[in-house]
C-alpha cells in the first residue's frame, strides 16, 4: 500500500469518525461545520474531474453549484407553498432529497453540455474567461429573477426529506452528505482508472497523440466537464439544504474561485485533494473568520505557499509525488 493510499484511508476514517465524536461530545456546531466541509468537498471532487483529470481550468463551476442550489430552492419552495413548478403541466415541487439531487445533477449536466460545447473550442486563458463569463451571466440572471427572490434569495423553512433519516438532526444530515461524498470519491477514483480516465488524462497531456490514435480529445474533455458539473450541481443542492437558503451568491465567481483555490490547496488531480482542501478552508474560515473579516488574506498566503512550494497541494506534501495509476 502506497503512502497516498494510507493518507486516503486516514482521510476517510476522519470523515466518518471525527463528526461522530463531535456529536457524542454534544458539539453540534462542529458537526454542522463538518457538513459544510463535506458539501464543499463534494463540489471540489466535481471540479477535480474537470481540473485535475481533464486539465480544464474552469472558473465557471459556480454555475453548476448555483444550478444545484436553485434546483433545490425552486422544488422545495413549490413543495412548501403547494404550488406547481410549471403551471400548465401541474408539475408539483418536491422535498424529497434523492429526487432533488437528480434534478440538480441533470440540469447542471445539461448546462455544462452547452457551456462546454462552446468554451472547449478555446483553451488556456480564453477558456478561463469564457467559463467566467457564463458564470456571470447566470449570476446576474439569478439576481434579476423576482419569482425566486431575486437578490434576496430564497428561504426554505424545513430541510428536505431523505427516506429513513431525520435530516433535521445535524449528525443524521451529515451522514447523508458524507455518504454522498464517499460515493462521489469512489466514482472519481474509478473514473481515473477507467479506459475513459486514461484517455482523458492523455488528452490533458498530449492531445495530438490522442487524435493520432483515433480518439477525439475535445469530446473526452466535454464528457469530463459534464460529469464534473453534475457532481458540483449535486453539491449545490446539498449546500442549499444545509443553509436552507439559496441566493445568487452561489453563482458568483467568488464561489468558483473558492472551490478552485481549495482544490489547489488540497492537491489538484489527487483523489482526496478536494476533501483536505475543503476542510482546511472551512477551518480557516471558522477560526480566523472570528478574528478578522479579512481572514482570506491568510488563505491567500497559504495558496501562495502551496503553489510555490508544493505542486501536489497538501496531499502531495504528505504523500509525495503521485504514482502513475496501476
Amino acid at each position: 500500500m502506497s503512502r497516498e493510499h494510507l493518507v486516503n484511508l486516514a482521510v476517510v476514517l476522519a470523515l466518518v469518525l471525527l463528526p461522530l465524536a463531535a456529536h457524542l461530545m454534544g458539539e453540534t456546531y462542529w458537526v454542522t461545520l463538518a457538513t459544510r466541509a463535506a458539501v464543499l468537498a463534494l463540489a471540489g471532487v466535481g471540479l477535480n474531474i474537470a481540473l485535475g483529470q481533464g486539465g480544464l481550468v474552469s472558473l465557471g463551476h459556480a454555475v453548476f453549484f448555483g444550478i444545484g442550489g436553485y434546483a433545490m430552492g425552486i422544488l422545495a419552495y413549490h413543495a412548501q407553498t403547494y404550488t406547481p413548478v410549471i403551471e400548465s403541466l401541474g408539475l408539483p415541487g418536491t422535498n424529497l432529497m434523492p429526487l432533488i439531487w437528480l434534478v440538480a445533477a441533470m440540469f447542471a449536466a445539461l448546462a455544462a453540455l452547452m457551456i462546454g460545447a462552446l468554451s472547449l473550442r478555446t483553451s488556456g486563458v480564453y477558456f478561463i474567461m469564457i467559463t467566467l463569463a457564463f458564470g456571470q451571466m447566470f449570476y446576474f440572471f439569478a439576481l434579476s429573477w423576482p419569482t425566486y427572490g431575486g437578490e434576496d434569495g430564497l428561504s426554505i423553512y424545513v430541510r428536505n426529506r431523505f427516506p429513513g433519516v431525520n435530516t433535521l438532526v445535524p449528525i443524521q444530515f451529515y451522514g447523508v452528505v458524507a455518504a454522498v461524498l464517499l460515493l462521489a470519491l469512489l466514482l472519481s477514483d474509478r473514473l481515473a482508472r477507467s479506459p475513459f480516465g486514461l484517455a482523458l488524462a492523455a488528452a490533458r497531456q498530449v492531445p495530438a497523440r490522442v487524435a493520432a490514435v483515433g480518439l477525439d480529445p475535445q469530446r473526452l474533455k466535454l464528457v469530463a466537464f459534464v460529469l464534473s458539473a453534475a457532481l458540483t450541481g449535486l453539491a449545490g443542492a446539498l449546500f442549499a439544504d444545509l443553509n436552507r437558503f439559496v441566493s445568487p451568491t452561489m453563482f458568483s465567481w467568488h464561489t468558483s474561485g473558492e472551490i478552485m483555490v481549495f482544490v489547489i490547496i488540497g492537491g489538484v488531480g489527487r483523489l482526496m485533494g478536494p476533501v483536505v482542501g475543503a476542510v482546511v478552508f472551512v477551518l480557516l474560515e471558522h477560526l480566523l473568520g472570528g478574528i478578522s473579516e479579512y481572514w482570506q488574506i491568510a488563505f491567500g498566503v497559504l495558496l501562495l505557499l502551496i503553489v510555490l512550494f508544493a505542486r501536489g497541494g497538501l496531499i502531495g506534501l504528505i504523500a509525495g509525488r503521485e504514482k502513475a495509476h496501476g
Binding site: R190, F196, A199, A202, V213, L215, V223
Partner: peptide, 22 residues
C-alpha cells in the same frame, strides 16, 4: 498505459467509466 491508449484508440470506444483499464 501509453501503449494501452493506442489499443483503446484502435478499439475506438473509450466510454467505459467504471472498469479499471488495467
Amino acid at each position: 498505459q501509453n501503449v494501452m491508449l493506442g489499443a483503446l484508440g484502435a478499439r475506438g470506444r473509450p466510454w467505459r467509466f467504471f472498469v479499471p483499464v488495467l
